[in-house]
Simulated scan of single mutants.
Amino acid sequence: MRSYRRRFLLVPALLCALAVLAALPAGAVGDRKGAQGRNGTGTGGDSVLSAQVVQLYADAARATQRYEKGRRGAEVQRAKAQRAEALLERERREIGVLHEDLGRIARAQYRSGGGMPLTAQIILAKDPDELMRGQHVFSQTNMAVGNAIEKSRRAEARLAKDEAKAAAAWQNLEKRNAELAELKEGIEQKLEQARWQLQGQADASVAAGSCSGAVRLDQPKRDLTSEWVAPLESYELSAAFGSGGLRWANLHTGQDFAVPIGAPVRAVGDGHVVRVSCGGAFGMEVVLLHADGYYTQYAHLAAVAVDQGERVDTGQWIGQSGTSGNSTGPHLHFEVRVTAELGSAVDPVPWLTERGVRLG
């Protein structure tokens, strides 16, 4: 009785399997086998190149951070130098005023007899008290003016020294920024070369209609607080769902993200890989099935980092962006579908918004 029941259940299971195989597009079965590669991974060259692109992205990001930090430091130093120059100019104006005052005092003393010899002042003074008062005022005036001039001279010397130090520091920062810019440019050149090598391998796989296998990237530590994320960390939104144009036979069925070749593409949520395909309009693509029954598609890739049947977590890198298939430039074509097949797509932007992911 027990064996009869097993035979009874086997019939619908076989029918379901045949139906699934029949529903798969041409080449999908071969794609799955090709995607496994040797021991479920891609060739060594593919993995090395993909890892190189990811590493170059990280190097370029670090170089950019260093460049921006140096630039901000230079701006702070320039502001300090400008304040020092303004203070120096103010002190110079004050010194000019003091010099003018000193000239007026000297002229007034000359007119009032302050510049006369002491013998003449004694003869002309009405009494000793008048003579002493005049001498005291003259002495105090000279001392005050002398102190002010000396103080201004010291301030001017100090500020000139500070200005020279600020200018030297500014020159050093400019030199450092130039070195960082050169470093960044070198990394970007290497990155551009590696990107197109990676894309060349993807185009070869698409032309052959079979993926070379998953490249295994070193996954970053994921400390996510949400169950859903955007498919890319950094991007610009381009063609939207439902838009029309000469590029598509019908309306656009997904949301495009403009990114360079080789940018890590993330699973928007936990799920299973139900398709890894290389060929056709979508080029190299990955389709995931999520627990809520929706499917997500990631198309025009330059590399895939997962195999069919594999489980993925939210934020896991599942591939790298590219421009394979029917694509006019590097971007990620992202779809949300009710089924795994083309023609059941829904607008991915409100779908992600409902799950706490706002694009833009």
Rank of each mutant, 00 (worst) to 15 (best):
A181V: 06
E94T: 05
R153Q: 03
A86H: 10
G269N: 03
A22T: 05
Q316V: 02
D307N: 14
R62K: 05
I149E: 07
W170V: 12
W228A: 01
P260T: 05
E227F: 01
G186K: 02
P348A: 15
V137W: 10
V11H: 03
L98H: 10
N142K: 10
L217A: 08
A167S: 05
L10A: 13
R355Q: 03
E185M: 13
E233T: 15
A51K: 13
L15S: 09
P330H: 03
F257G: 09
T119L: 15
G73V: 01
L9M: 08
D127V: 10
K161D: 15
G70T: 08
D307K: 08
R311H: 13
G40I: 06
E335A: 10
L217M: 09
V259K: 01
L56Y: 00
R154V: 12
A169C: 13
D256E: 04
P25R: 08
N177K: 15
M132Q: 10
E130K: 02
E130Y: 05
P117A: 06
V273K: 09
L173Y: 14
W228G: 03
H290P: 09
K151D: 14
Q140V: 04
A267G: 00
S321H: 08
L359H: 08
R5M: 07
A240L: 00
A305T: 03
N326F: 12
A63E: 01
I123D: 14
A84S: 12
A26L: 11
D218K: 15
H300I: 02
V137D: 03
T296E: 05
C16R: 10
A208F: 00
V76M: 08
S210G: 02
K221G: 11
G209N: 00
P128N: 07
V265R: 10
V54R: 01
G146E: 06
E68A: 07
F282S: 13
N250F: 04
S344T: 13
Q77H: 12
G45D: 02
A26V: 12
L332I: 04
S238I: 04
G213D: 09
V265W: 03
V357L: 11
Y4Q: 09
M143Q: 15
E236F: 07
S238W: 02
E75C: 11
V346N: 03
A144P: 00
A299N: 08
E174M: 14
R2G: 15
V338K: 15
I261Q: 01
T41L: 10
T141S: 11
V304D: 00
E91G: 10
D307Y: 02
K69Y: 04
Q82W: 03
A13L: 15
R176G: 04
A148P: 04
S3E: 13
P220G: 12
T328V: 06
A305K: 09
R107C: 08
R83K: 09
P12L: 07
A166L: 14
A58E: 07
V48D: 06
G315H: 09
Q255M: 00
L359I: 06
L191M: 09
E91Y: 06
G37D: 03
Q77K: 15
V229H: 05
T323S: 08
G115W: 11
K80P: 11
L237G: 05
E150N: 13
R222P: 12
A181K: 05
L359P: 14
E100C: 13
R355K: 14
L159P: 07
F8P: 14
